[in-house]
Each structure stands twice: as structure tokens, then as C-alpha cells.
Write a protein that binds this DNA or RNA. Structure first.
Lengths: 153, 153
DNA sequence: CGCATATCAGTAGGACTGAAATCA
DNA sequence: CTGATTTCAGTCGTACTGATATGC
């Protein structure tokens, strides 16, 4: 928790879109990190468990592409999740380069806990906005993200 | 530059507001960091120089409150900016605990360079949106940030 | 061979903490 | 004494790079 009472910021900064995004993302990340840390989790755990739950057993490389998490960070996070019993890693007999990662029942229960925690966090984050403002914000962010994660040409 | 072709993400993730914010902020930060690094600058430089230009000579503590930058990071960044000749630090005769930081003419010129660089970056970032969508996004983010940086009660 | 996968070691900037020294 | 300011020495999670080993 940071939270020093802020002063009045320079106009150049308060109207700079990239900075607004960073500052609001920082607020969101503080809420998410604190909330997840309270139950012993991190953002990467949620991203990986929810991807495994939706798409089924996957290689680590595929998980990296779907979540945007670096291959290198997948490795260490997978070790954590496996250690906690939330996933299993087996060598894929069809392609022995791959680790086939599978979510366990314990992992599914864990995902449920994380879902509930994150729901509460989203509410806290978006509390200042009306329902239709929240929808608009989400659509605008999705549009921005979609265009910027496409191959640019 | 990261840029691995992304896969299809889990629905839980693509609709999670905190994650959308983080992902778009990440895009913005990559653009900003790369653009500023190309001319030897960092985000903190812009935040501090623009605050000094708008509010005049300030203590480091005041700069920290206005920019949201931690007191500890102000110290090291100020050393960089002073080393480059963009600011001067004098002991405030009126309160000898304080460093009175003042932007130099060279610092003002530098701020102009950073302004131009950042203008181009904002255009690239917001290119997928229409003008009125950009305005709406900015308003929504400002509202969120304002409410979350107020004393909560 | 080229290419993908998994792993490890390490880097970099950003956010933050705790403690010390100084002074209002 | 309390409280503000500056500074230093770290920690932490995130994003990322480079190299290596292995297998398709």
C-alpha cells in the first residue's frame, strides 16, 4: 500500500493518455496484487489457471502465447502451481519437447476462489463509474488492445 | 520490444477490466519507454521536468506528491537530471531541509523535445480510436483515477 | 538442417520499505 | 519532542534477453 496524499499534478500529465492509463493500471494492480496476495496468489496464477480451464491441457509455449506471459516466467510460475498441486506437468508422448500442463481438481477449486476474489476487486475498481460507463470503458480498451496486438502489417 | 504473435486468450481474461487496463497500459509503456529511450530519457524525466516547468522551483518532497513518484526515486532521478544540466538543486535558505529544484533553460529545451516525442507516441497509441472515442476514454480514466486518489473518506 | 520447446541465469525499470541524518 | 525532508540500501513482482539442451 502506497497511498501518500497526492498533490496537484501538472496539466501536461493529467491529460496525457499514456500516463492516465499507467496510473489507473497502477491502481488496478495494487488492488489485484493486494487481494490476491492475501490468499497467497499472483496475477500469473489466475491467467494460467483460467486459460487451462478454458482450453484444456496445453503446452507451456501455448499458454505463453494465450496469456502474453513470457516463456521464461511461465516456467517458474508453473513450478509454483505444480508445487501447490493446482496443475500437473507430463511429458507429451506425441511431442516429447512439450510439457503437457493439465489443471487438477484442486486447481479448479482454486480458480473458483480466485474468481470470487477478482470479482470483488473489479467492483471496487469500477465503483466510480456507472454500469454503462464501465461497458464503454471495456469496449474502448478491448479495441485498443486488439489493434495493438495484431500484426501491424 | 516484446511482440510475440499472441494466441486466443481465455474469455475470463479478455473481459476482466483490471487485466484490460494492465495490457493496454503495457502497450502504452512499451511505446513510451522505447520512444523516450531512443532519445536517452525515461518517464520520470518527463514527469519531473513538466512539473517543474508548470509550478516553478519546488522541493523534492513536493515533486513527489505532485507526480506520485516515490521520495526515494526522486532522489536518484534528480541526480540524473542535475548531471545532465536540466535542473539545479540548491539548498533552500528559507528551510534548510529542502532542496530547491529549478529547471534550467537547457531543461526547458529538453522538455520541448520530450513533448514532441510524446505527442507522436500518443497518436500511435490512440490511432485505433476516433477523436470522440479518445475523449471519452480520457474522461473515463480521469474519473477513475480521481476517485481512487482521493482520501477514501 | 531449420524450427519449436523448455529451462536457466541474468538484466532493467518501476514501485516500494526501513532506517538514518538533518532541521523546522 | 513531533514532524518534514533528503538520502541510502535494499526488496519485490513484472517484463524481458540470451544462451543452452532437446526433440520435431
Amino acid at each position: 500500500m502506497a497511498l501518500v496524499k497526492p498533490g496537484i499534478a501538472a496539466k501536461r500529465l493529467t491529460s496525457l493518455p499514456s500516463r492516465l492509463l499507467t496510473q489507473v493500471a497502477l491502481v488496478a494492480n495494487r488492488l489485484v496484487n493486494d487481494g490476491l496476495a492475501a490468499i497467497g496468489a499472483r496475477r500469473y496464477h489466475y491467467a494460467l489457471l483460467s486459460t487451462l480451464a478454458e482450453f484444456g491441457p496445453s503446452s507451456q509455449a501455448s499458454l505463453g502465447r494465450r496469456t502474453g506471459i513470457d516463456r521464461s516466467d511461465i516456467v517458474s510460475t508453473m513450478a509454483e502451481l505444480e508445487g501447490a498441486g493446482y496443475v500437473t506437468r507430463l511429458n507429451d508422448p506425441a511431442d516429447r519437447r512439450r510439457n503437457l500442463v493439465t489443471i487438477t481438481n484442486k486447481g479448479r477449486k482454486r480458480l473458483g476462489e480466485l474468481d470470487r476474489e477478482l470479482d470483488a476487486i473489479q467492483d471496487a475498481l469500477l465503483a466510480p463509474l456507472t454500469i454503462s460507463q464501465r461497458e464503454r470503458l471495456i469496449l474502448l480498451l478491448q479495441k485498443l488492445y486488439a489493434r495493438h496486438s495484431e500484426p501491424v502489417e
